[in-house]
Design a protein around this nucleic acid. Structure first.
Lengths: 344, 344
DNA sequence: TTGAAAGCGGTACCAT
DNA sequence: ATGGTACCGCTTTCAA
C-alpha cells in the first residue's frame, strides 16, 4: 500500500493524505482522523527511499568501525552504546547503518558515504590519539560525532567518551588502599586514545601517593587473552614482581587469571586482579556545541524532536553528568608481602 | 555532483551517462571512457535513495538482534559474522542495517521493515528453538535468513549455523579422554537453539562411552559471569562433584574460573575447565536452496554478482565445508581422584 | 481546507 | 550508439 493507493482509496489527493499523516495543521480534524484510521488499517508506511529523496534526508545514522578494531564489538561498552543508540534512533524513525571499513579504505569510504547520501551523519568508533578520520570527515562536510576522543587533534569536533582517566585512577586507588604498591598495568595499545587516558589515570593515582611509576610494570598491546597471559609470565620473574594486575579488558583479564592460576599463586591472597572494563560516566565536549550522547538512558533522554537526527542536537547543559559505574569484574586482596613503602 | 550535472558537463544525455556507468553494452567505448573519467574526476556517486526508488531495491540488508540478546554482540562468533557480512556487502555495494528490536515489538518491527522497504532482506540473529520471528517473516514476504536454527519450526527457511552439536561432542570427548567422568555442563538457556544442540552433543559423547548423564551436572541459564560462578559453588557440595566444567561462553567460563580459584582447587590438576565458544564449521541448509553464508571467508566467497544481494543466492553445493575451529580457551588436566568408572 | 503539478535523482522503455 | 520521457513514491509550492 503506497500513498497513491491510500489516497485513491480515501477519495482524497496525495497531498492531503500526506499532510494529514505528517501532522500539518491545515488539515481538518475529521479528515485527519479518517486518514489516520485508514493508514493504520492498511498498515501503511511511507517508503523510506521516496521520502528521503523528496526531503533530502536519509533518516539514517552511520556507525563506522575500523576493521582493525573489529573486536571492539566484543566490548560491553560498545554493545551498550550501540543498543542505546539503536533504541533511540528507532524511536525517532531513524535507521542505524553499520560500516566496517578497512583501515586502508577509510578515505574512499567516507567520500562515498558523503556522496551517496545514505546517511545524515556518522558516529565514529574506536578513536585513536591522532585519528585521521576526523580531518577526513571535516573535509567531507558530513556531520559526525566521535565515540571516544582524539587527544592529539586540536580542531574542534563533537565527541562523547567514557571517563577513562578517572576510572583507572579510581581502580588504582582501590588497589593502593588495599596496600598494593607494585601494580601492573595491562593496558591496550597506546595509539588508542582510551589506553593513553587510562595510563594517565593509573599514573596520577600512583603519583598522588608518592608510589614509584615503574615502566617495567606498564604494558600496552592489543587486548587479547594471550597478551594478559604473557604479561603475567613476564612479570613473575621480576626482582620485585607485582602484587596486583590492573587489566584494561575483560578478555585480557581472563588471560591474566589463567596465568596466575598456573603460577600457583593464590588469587586474592598472593595476588589481585582488577578489570575495570569501563566506567560509564560519560563526558561531554561542552555545553554550547551539539554532542552525541550514548549509554542507553542518555541516548534515550537526548532523543530528537521531529526532523532532528537524534544525537546531533544540542544537549541540556544543566543535565547532571551520567554516572553508571560498570565494574566488569573485581577480585581483590591484600598483598602477603609487607608493603615495601610506607603509605603517604 | 549528480547525474544531471554530470551529463550536462559532458554534453550527453542522462541516459547515456547512466548506461556508461552501469556497464551497458550499447555504449561506445570512447564514450564510456570519457564518462568514467569525468565521473571519477568529479567524485560522482549515484544517490542511493534515488537509485533505490528507481530500481525498487534498497541496496541494504538488515540484521536483526533481539534486544534481549543484546549481549550476543559480545560474542566473538557474532563479531566475526558481522565483520564478514559487512565486508561482503560493501564489496557488492550493499549497506548493512542494524536493528536492535525489543522482544515485544517484534511483530510491529518486521511489518514496518517490510512496508518501509528500506532493506532487501533480513538476517535474523540469536535464533530460539521455536522462533516466532520466522513465521512472522514468512508472512511479510521479506526474504530472510537465520543465523542459527529454530529446531522446532518445521516450515522450510534458510539458515546458517555453527556446528554446535559436534563442537560440544568434541569438547566432551576431549575431557573424557583425559579420564574425566563427572563433567558439568554450564550451558546457555535451552530456549536458545544453540544451547539445546550443545547439550545434545554433550549427551551424545557421554552416551557413546556409557557414562551416566546426570541431570545434577547440567545447567542452563543466561550466560553471565555470575552464573558461571554460582554454578561452581553449587556443584562443589555435591556428593560426587564434577572434575571438569564445560562452559558455553567465555564470559561464563570467567565466572567458573573465579569460583574455582576461590575454592582452593588447583586448576588443571584438581579440575578442568573448557570453554568451547564456538566451532565455526558452518552448516548449510542444503544444496538446492538459497542460503546465507557467514564467516569472513565464506561470506566473501559467496559474494554476489551485480544485482544479486549477497547472501541470498545459490551456493555452490560442491564447496568444501568451512572448518575454522575456534577454541576460545582451554585449560585441561586429568582428575586427581581415580576415575570411578572403567573406560569403555 | 483541498488539490494539481513540479521536483528529488536516478533507471529503463521506446524512438531515432 | 544516443536521446526523450515516463516513472519510482513522496513532499512541497502554488493555486483554487
Amino acid at each position: 500500500m503506497n500513498l497513491k493507493q491510500l489516497s485513491a482509496h480515501l477519495g482524497l489527493s496525495q497531498t492531503t493524505v500526506s499532510r494529514a499523516l505528517n501532522g500539518y495543521p491545515e488539515v481538518s480534524e475529521t479528515t485527519r482522523k479518517r486518514v489516520m484510521e485508514a493508514a493504520d488499517k492498511h498498515n501503511y508506511r511511507p517508503n523510506t527511499r521516496a521520502k528521503g529523496l523528496a526531503t533530502g534526508r536519509a533518516m539514517a545514522i552511520g556507525h563506522v568501525i575500523p576493521l582493525s578494531a573489529q573486536h571492539e564489538m566484543m566490548n560491553p561498552v560498545f554493545a551498550d552504546f550501540i543498543a542505546g543508540a539503536g533504541e533511540s534512533y528507532s524511536e525517532a524513525g531513524y535507521d542505524m547503518l553499520l560500516s566496517l571499513v578497512a583501515d586502508a579504505d577509510q578515505e574512499r569510504a567516507y567520500r562515498e558515504m558523503a556522496a551517496k547520501r545514505n546517511v545524515d551523519g556518522l558516529v565514529v568508533h574506536a578513536a585513536k590519539m591522532r585519528d585521521a578520520r576526523i580531518l577526513l570527515l571535516q573535509n567531507t562536510g558530513l556531520p559526525f560525532a566521535v565515540h571516544g576522543r582524539a587527544s592529539e587533534i586540536t580542531t574542534p569536533y563533537n565527541w562523547l567518551d567514557v571517563n577513562n582517566k578517572s576510572a583507572f585512577e579510581r581502580a588504582t586507588n582501590f588497589l593502593l588502599d588495599l596496600g598494593h604498591r607494585r601494580i601492573c598495568l595491562v593496558n591496550g595499545q597506546e595509539s588508542m586514545d582510551f589506553a593513553h587516558r587510562r595510563r594517565k589515570g593509573y599514573e596520577a593515582a600512583l603519583a598522588a601517593r608518592g608510589v614509584e611509576i615503574d615502566p617495567a610494570l606498564m604494558f600496552a598491546d592489543e587486548m587479547t587473552e594471550i597478551y594478559g597471559y604473557d604479561t603475567v609470565q613476564r612479570t613473575r620473574s621480576l626482582a620485585d614482581p607485582p602484587t596486583a594486575y590492573l587489566a584494561s579488558s575483560i578478555i585480557t583479564a581472563f588471560g591474566v587469571r589463567r596465568a596466575i592460576e598456573e603460577s600457583g599463586l593464590k588469587m586474592g591472597r598472593d595476588i589481585s586482579v582488577i578489570t575495570h572494563d569501563d566506567d560509564l560516566s560519560y563526558m561531554r565536549n561542552g555545553a554550547d556545541v551539539p554532542v552525541f550522547t550514548a549509554t542507553r538512558s542518555s541516548v534515550r533522554e537526548a532523543g530528537g524532536g521531529p526532523g532532528q537526527p537524534p544525537g546531533f542536537q544540542n544537549q541540556n547543559p544543566r543535565a547532571p553528568p551520567q554516572t553508571e559505574p560498570f565494574l566488569a569484574e573485581v577480585t581483590v586482596g591484600r598483598p602477603t608481602r609487607p608493603p615495601p613503602h610506607t603509605v603517604v
